[in-house]
Computed example of a mutant assay.
Amino acid sequence: MVQGRENTRPAPRRAPRVSYRQADPAAVLAEPGALAVFGFGAGAATSDDPRWLRVALETFDAPAPLEIWQVDAPVTQGREGDLCWAAGGGWLYAAVELDEAVHGGPRATAATAYAQLRAFLAGRSERHVLRIWNYLADINQGEGDDERYKLFCEGRVDGMGDFFAEGFPAATAIGHHQAGARLQVYLLACDQAGERVENPRQVSAWRYPRQYGRSAPTFARAMALPAQDALAISGTAAVVGHASAHEDDLLAQLDETLANLEALLGSAGMGAGFDTQSPLKAYVRHAADAALVHDFLQRRLPGVPVLSLHGDICRQELLVEIDGWRYA
């Protein structure tokens, strides 16, 4: 045994700080440690900075805030073809946006996006993917195995190959309503691995039965970041076991979703509840439900920052989905 070997291990990376803020994008991008900045909807600003992404989901919040990721280190950034990236302090943001009209539909486009990300990450020290977001058009269109979400899942498996052999990252997949079938995929990676967290109330997504498609969804329910100081929570809805619950009952789905979130916190050893430093996103299928969802979450999660977005859930019968962050 080499004496002192345990002292040579790098300290776990402190989690990036994720927040929502009303601000000028250019000013935020000029702040120290700005790793990524997100605007929402067609009215969001444009920028050539690789760290800026205009997400193809409209927000119900007016004026729309920015989502900001910051790290405690200088940040470098760049572009490689369709891919934008930024890195600092052992953390990496990367994003790909592709047009299905160019790449041949949801399966081929997803395969191309994930293959590009895989090739890029293979040359980086920050190759441990902890969290991924996927936004695609018309997610529920199509019948049976031809549903666009199921085709996306097949393409994701094709593109990732064996890259996630160590385990899948936390993830979200939501349908957007913007014109044009564009796929947006972005991720957070690190030079240290996180710890996957599953929900005892749910079947692990990659073990779903055949009824959910030829390729099961490939994601963990949550990811504890390397320093165990934050939990990245996947898109969470009213699913118990592997079945959707409370069809057409929005309030019951919200109750079930919060029960699933609390179960995840318990599995991760994070303690109960969310606080003012725990930013969440609520994806709401029907615009007419936005006010009800807002009021419900204000009552059940007082003081918790929640960004409300108009997006379709990956199952037609689900009306709302929540993801986000819980800091220790």
Rank of each mutant, 00 (worst) to 15 (best):
E147W: 01
E147G: 15
E147V: 08
E147Y: 00
R148S: 15
R148V: 01
R148H: 13
K150D: 02
K150V: 02
K150Q: 04
K150L: 10
K150H: 01
L151V: 03
L151H: 01
L151P: 02
L151T: 02
F152C: 10
F152G: 04
F152D: 08
C153I: 00
C153P: 00
C153G: 00
C153N: 11
C153H: 08
C153L: 07
E154T: 13
E154Y: 06
E154A: 11
E154F: 00
G155D: 08
R156G: 00
R156I: 04
R156H: 08
R156M: 15
R156D: 02
V157D: 15
V157W: 11
V157I: 01
V157R: 12
V157A: 15
V157H: 13
V157Q: 11
V157E: 14
V157F: 04
D158A: 07
D158P: 03
D158K: 01
D158I: 05
D158M: 05
G159Q: 08
G159R: 02
G159T: 12
G159W: 02
G159C: 11
M160L: 14
M160N: 06
M160S: 14
M160R: 10
M160A: 14
M160D: 03
G161T: 09
G161W: 08
G161N: 12
G161R: 13
D162Y: 02
F163A: 07
F163H: 07
F163P: 03
F163W: 01
F163K: 01
F164Y: 13
A165F: 11
A165R: 15
A165P: 00
A165T: 11
E166N: 08
E166C: 10
E166W: 11
G167N: 08
G167T: 08
G167W: 05
G167V: 09
G167Y: 10
G167D: 12
F168T: 04
F168A: 10
F168K: 05
P169L: 06
P169A: 06
P169G: 01
P169Q: 09
A170W: 05
A170N: 09
A170P: 07
A171C: 11
A171I: 03
T172F: 02
T172W: 04
T172Q: 14
A173M: 07
A173N: 14
A173W: 07
I174V: 15
I174G: 04
G175S: 07
H176T: 04
H176V: 07
H177D: 12
H177T: 04
H177W: 05
H177M: 03
H177L: 05
Q178H: 13
Q178Y: 00
Q178F: 04
Q178A: 09
A179S: 15
A179M: 04
A179T: 11
A179K: 10
